[in-house]
């Protein structure tokens, strides 16, 4: 039976069917789940359980019927244990959790990401390309070097097929132009007066900087940013370890994707996060 979404339940055990090196220190995994669901929405996340080690939130890069794609970079003991998993091993999945990106009609879609932030943006790109009418999609990706560009071949291929425009850069100039994604982003916003919506995922400090850039341009209709890079326990709203001040919004259910109006109200945005103890610290 195909369900609307997965149930909010104990971890659903899925089998790893593909494991590939995606870029430096980052692996692409395909996980086969025992239940079919209609779809995962771009920006939603799962809680991934590596049995006996840890459970952590991770963005969804793709989902079709019952095959889930995630990208795992080495961040700590949990992600490291996941990277050491092999094809055939079982891992637990809870989700899909959170509010997704909500792309409106008739705008330029500007997807801006860094590092594992590219994960939800990959699913967003897939979703936009599935629409009946051709969408104007621009993807801005930056990394330190070519080896660290996530989904480089995938995005480059779409660019070569003229399905998206891929604005790619590296700090050292080893691929694309040398510099930050914001350079091309600002060039685009200055040259195109048609309405644009920005979708951003990545480190929060970077997002805050991009948010401040976006605010300068009246042709930016909305900025939707994913604040998923925070400590979470439950993923469905109960524990509140991911909550932001002063609104009391839980990243896991009220987010992780917030729009411009909401981001303006979150004083923690780009500045503070919570540790496992609940203590608030500077990012």
């Amino acid at each position: 039976m195909t369900k609307q979404t997965l149930p909010n339940d104990k971890p659903l055990m899925g089998k790893i069917i593909t494991k590939e090196l995606e870029c430096e220190d980052t692996y692409k995994f395909l996980i086969e789940l025992p239940i079919k669901a209609q779809r995962a929405l771009p920006g939603q996340f799962i809680m991934l359980w590596v049995p006996g080690v840890d459970e952590f939130p991770i963005g969804i890069a793709g989902f079709k019927e019952n095959i889930l794609e995630v990208g795992i970079a080495k961040m700590g003991p949990g992600t490291e244990a996941m990277i050491n998993k092999q094809i055939g091993d079982l891992v637990g999945v809870r989700g899909f959790y959170g509010k997704p990106f909500k792309p409106p009609q008739d705008v330029n879609h500007l997807l801006i990401g860094g590092g594992f932030g590219m994960t939800p943006l990959k699913l967003l790109t897939t979703t936009l390309l599935e629409k009946d009418s051709k969408q104007n999609i621009h993807v801005f990706e930056g990394a330190r070097t070519k080896d660290r560009l996530m989904y480089l071949d995938w995005f480059q291929d779409l660019h070569d097929k003229d399905l998206i425009t891929f604005h790619v850069c590296t700090d050292d100039g080893s691929y694309g132009y040398q510099g930050f994604p914001t350079v091309d982003l600002e060039n685009f916003l200055q040259e195109n007066q048609t309405p644009s919506v920005m979708y951003v995922a990545g480190p929060e400090k970077m997002m805050k900087a991009i948010f401040n850039i976006g605010k300068k341009y009246s042709n930016v209709m909305d900025m939707q940013m994913s604040l998923a890079d925070r400590y979470m326990r439950c993923g469905f709203g109960a524990c509140s370890y991911c909550a932001v001040d002063p609104t009391g919004w839980r990243i896991c259910v009220d987010g992780p994707v917030f729009n411009t109006e909401q981001l303006e109200q979150i004083s923690d945005f780009g500045l503070y996060k919570r540790l496992e103890s609940g203590e608030k610290v500077r990012i």
């Binding site: 339940d9 809680m47 359980w49 840890d54 524990c239 203590e279």
Partner: peptide, 24 residues
């Protein structure tokens, strides 16, 4: 360590082992 909170849908319940995480 996590998992420390998850739902048990069939019985509309939640199991947790957060273990008094708090900032003091």
């Amino acid at each position: 360590p996590n998992p420390s909170v998850f739902a048990l849908q069939e019985i509309r319940s939640v199991i947790n082992s957060v273990g008094l995480a708090n900032p003091g």
